[in-house]
Design a protein around this nucleic acid. Structure first.
Lengths: 237, 237
DNA sequence: CTTGGCCAAATCGTATGCAATCTGATCTGT
DNA sequence: ACAGATCAGATTGCATACGATTTGGCCAAG
């Protein structure tokens, strides 16, 4: 039990490396640095992170479980290219789950939580103010984080896991089908939801959340891309 | 492209073997042939199914994602021992999701679906009539299958996946905390739900489903086991 | 010039080997 | 006799090796 061993900085890399790779790839996919359809070869991923194919493979399989990549037998892993129909199912699922999360969060939220939410929303505002593609990525990510924090406050780990998956897939869908202009309006809705939460008004917060999800989905170009779906049916299904 | 190659019987075993192992272990866990806390060593699982540790490990990791096993680093995989609190979260999640599934299913259910449901419910009834531990296992499984069929009819693959996980975990919880006597009353509730679905009455079907979930949860011994939770905090948490 | 089949390169699926870590049993010193 | 350290056995984490499958290009026949 050498103390020196424990003093080594909190073994960040010592942790499961496949988890770190999963996280890095997840961010890259959600940020759209990795375009849908991109092939993620096991050897390539392994080489990028200086690990063997074994651990790269584990990371890819985790992402496949989350729906962010699609694995075809003997062919490899590809960044998911969710169809418009899948996108609608994602938002339908969120409309079911998020009001329940609100209801649970209202019961448990603390003043400290609210303070943290406010800081998070300021961060979000900052990303909205800067323009440019990388700021837009950060904006999508920050917007997702708001919903994840909410799920965390709700205190139901299962719903939290579901929201993890749904937010990741939503970010991918927004990056794919989103129109750039209007998405910033979501920020005000986040603020309004937080205010309702602070007042303890679960019903209003739920209503606001539902409208918020509606707005996000309405901001997508799901109909026009049907011709697109035809094309990538030939290209990569 | 030899035709003879295609004629070879649909390579059922040639498919991913880890998926088959996952399924087998999943059934064993849900049927309670594998008790919570049981260690699932990679070598042991591999030997049982005549595969290498690699594929056994993949199966165990999939089960860990579903929450049916718990993997501790450098220690191995164990059958999950969900806490009463976790059980409550599972049912809270189901109360959110299943009414939404009902609403979607009402729109899409066909006469053929209803016919299939009726056959499934007859099967369920048969298991209830026989007594004995193996019949009880089959009863729990059949009851879960009803909910899974519902999710399948709803046509939302994401919710379907969530329900897969929730039903599996519920079965584990029921096997752990369930009182044997009353659970058969669930069958009538399934019938009532199906009737409401057939009439196209989504509101009533949702109400019935919520009550059904309430009844399942009320049938559990979640309070008394808190002393138990203390004990297994020392034993294997 | 087009079409079909064949072959090689690349990639995946799986088995196995080695190092690291944990468990729990023995041994020693007080 | 008991407490704590040490060591052996077992098990996991990871890397690598080998066979299987797919892919894309080349060559030949029509």
């Amino acid at each position: 039990m050498n103390i020196s061993e424990n003093i080594t900085f909190p073994e960040a890399s010592q942790e499961d490396r496949s988890l770190a790779i999963r996280e890095a790839l997840r961010n890259a996919i959600v940020d759209r640095r990795l375009a849908p359809g991109t092939k993620l070869s096991e050897s390539e991923v392994g080489a990028l992170f200086s690990v063997s194919r074994t651990v790269a493979r584990a990371a890819l399989q985790m992402l496949a479980f989350e729906g962010l990549v699609r694995i075809e037998r003997n062919r490899g892993a590809f960044v998911s290219n969710p169809s418009p129909d899948e996108a609608r199912q994602i938002f339908a699922s969120r409309r079911l789950i998020e009001p329940g999360i609100i209801a649970a969060a209202v019961e448990r939220i603390t003043a400290a939580d609210i303070e943290q939410f406010r800081r998070q929303l300021e961060e979000e505002q900052r990303h909205i103010n800067e323009r440019g593609p990388s700021a837009r990525r950060a904006e999508i990510k920050a917007s997702g984080d708001f919903h994840l924090m909410l799920a965390s406050v709700a205190g139901n780990v299962i719903l939290q896991k579901f929201m993890d998956e749904l937010v990741g897939r939503s970010s991918l869908v927004i990056a794919l089908y989103g129109r750039s202009g209007i998405s910033s309006c979501g920020h005000n809705e986040h603020l309004a939801i937080l205010d309702a939460l602070e007042k303890g008004d679960a019903a209003q917060a739920s209503q606001l959340m539902l409208h918020h999800i509606d707005h996000i989905e309405a901001d997508l170009d799901l109909q026009l891309k049907q011709g697109f779906a035809l094309k990538d049916a030939l290209a990569l299904t």
